[in-house]
């Protein structure tokens, strides 16, 4: 079991995820993957849903993975992880095999939408696994279609911003709420601009027996249309504007890890991204106001849950 860290220097050097993958320049997925593989030492199995991560890191005969890894469909990553966990439990009982950590990785499509029923089942049955969603807020791998994780107002190829409809009109689903309502003991949000926080949350999730859920903000220069160099800058702004609150839920208690007392204007986060460009035009003010309200309501709700208001 790894122990919590305070500085970047304490992050282990060993890389079990190699370069040579075909993820876009500036992609936000590898920062998560590298941290997961570093923060969870010892034997582990990665179960990967269909999505950018799977497609771009295992183009036959190449793989970026130095740990056992299995791909399954969009809809059943949690079911596959659950099956592997059950198999290792049987092997442990019968032959004393040491159980590896089972880690499921899925994008928002494989979590919020297509993978949701398998996730719900696995959480309800209580399998010992860590489920991690890298959320880039649309189906990026198949061509930037909207998902249940796409925020209100964002333009995607299936919710283009036009003169009648200003991007996606519905609000984003609350994945953390869904996970917590299943009775998981630990769930947390993460962001690549806060690597120490991310590392410690992975360590904590791995120390809990039973299912845990981690929800990662995953910047996507291709789908969100921003300069590849700005991935971390955009991610940091997501926290500083309260768009992406960093918080955790542990055995009934909510804790906000970065309490943003004086938030930056939401526009600072939006204006770097092409998917939100239309929101800054006067005719779309109403949808911008709705999105701001979504952000504010969510923040106030969490502050209450964390006993800070």
């Amino acid at each position: 079991m790894a122990t919590p860290i305070k500085t970047l220097k304490e992050i282990p050097r060993e890389e079990l995820f190699t370069p040579g993958h075909r993820l876009c320049a500036g992609c936000g997925i590898p920062q998560l993957v590298r941290m997961v593989l570093k923060a969870i030492p010892g034997p582990k199995v990665i179960v990967n849903a269909t999505g950018c991560l799977e497609v771009a890191t295992t183009i036959y005969p190449y793989t970026s993975w130095k740990v056992p890894w299995v791909h399954n469909a969009f809809e059943n990553v949690a079911a596959t992880a659950a099956g592997i966990e059950a198999a290792f439990k049987a092997l442990e009982k019968k032959r004393g095999v040491k159980r590896p950590k089972i880690i499921a990785l899925a994008g928002d499509g494989g979590t919020f939408d297509i993978g949701l029923q398998a996730l719900s089942g696995a959480l309800e049955r209580g399998h010992d696994m860590i489920f991690i969603c890298y959320d880039n807020e649309a189906y990026m791998n198949t061509g930037i279609q909207r998902s249940g994780a796409t925020p209100r107002g964002a333009a995607t190829t299936t919710t283009p911003a036009g003169s009648v409809v200003p991007g996606k009109i519905e609000r984003k689903k609350d994945l953390m709420g869904i996970a917590i309502s299943h009775g998981v003991r630990y769930a947390a949000t993460m962001n690549p601009a806060y690597p120490v926080d991310m590392y410690n949350k992975i360590v904590k999730a791995a120390s809990v027996e039973g299912p845990t859920v981690l929800h990662y903000f995953c910047p996507c220069p291709t789908g969100w249309r921003f300069d590849t160099a700005k991935s971390i800058e955009v991610s940091r702004l997501a926290v500083q504007t309260r768009y992406w609150p960093l918080y955790e839920y542990e055995d009934g208690t909510y804790r906000i890890n970065v309490v943003v007392r004086n938030p930056r204007p939401l526009e600072d986060f939006l204006k770097l991204q092409g998917r939100f460009a239309h929101l800054l035009r006067p005719e779309n003010k109403h949808i911008l106001e709705q999105l701001k309200r979504d952000v504010e309501e969510n923040w106030n709700r969490l502050m209450k849950l964390a006993g800070l208001s």
Partner: peptide
């Protein structure tokens, strides 16, 4: 794929 980390042979 039985060769771990074979993507190292693919230079990006």
């Amino acid at each position: 794929i039985t060769e771990a980390g074979s993507a190292l042979r693919y230079k990006t």
